[in-house]
Amino acid sequence: MTVFVGIDIGSLETKVVLLENSELLDFRVNRSTFDFKRVGNEMFNDLLERNNLKKSDVYVMSTGYGRNSIDIADDRITEITAHARGAQYFFPDVHSVIDIGGQDSKAIVISKKSGNVIDFQMNDKCAAGTGRFIEVMAGALEVPIQNIGELALNSNNPASISSTCTVFAESEVISLFAKGTKKEDIAAGIHKSIARRVGGMAKRIGVSPLLVFCGGVAKNIAVKKFLEQELGFEIMSPISNGQSNAQLTGAIGAALIASDQSNS
């Protein structure tokens, strides 16, 4: 078999990729909704149809938060292993990965020698340091989520957001806003707060260059910039054909692992 499908069912978005001979043929990204099993199945069928394939032509590896609930998958793998493998697809010499998704964030260290994951750390169940945090704060600032990163980069004087808890941070943002603090300064404060939290977690397990930043939040340029400041080195984003593939890294990794397994 040469065609492999990776399905990454995240808490906010589902990503499906189709790989042939390790080449990305096609992909789909959609909201997971509460019914992520149905969404995953529909996206999978759509992808097969668009590429004139049948289920029996492909091997499916699921990953992500909903990896166990999707019955079309032939096997499953955690998003930690999948992201590490996906990051290697874009940067073969990768040593560390930071993945910030909708509901969680992870830092992963990969052995330079074996290419295997040797350590990882995840945030605990609280939403601080995740995409959800940005979403809530964007809501509080009444700024579309896709613009909040750029807005933050316009700041010359980032506000200080001291609460790590999303609920408290939201009240802090509202009160800063009420005091007349500029939106861009608050936005910068929000991004710095995420970078501090995720950067701290990543430093604890000894991340170092070459570090790949992936997950949905990696598309946010301000989080990337502040993370670089926090870590003290440049971080890389998975890009191909001028497009960010940050969100697809887990799904690509899952498909690659399926392919690795079939080759071994």
């Binding site: 938060y65 955690t78 998003e79 930690i80 295997n116 994951v117 990882f120 169940k125």
Partner: peptide, 23 residues
Amino acid sequence: LERDYSRANRGQLSTRIEAFLEM
């Protein structure tokens, strides 16, 4: 493996354990 006893933790705990065993 740090955790409390809340049910909401279950999914995350299982990811951490699985990832560790995959590693």
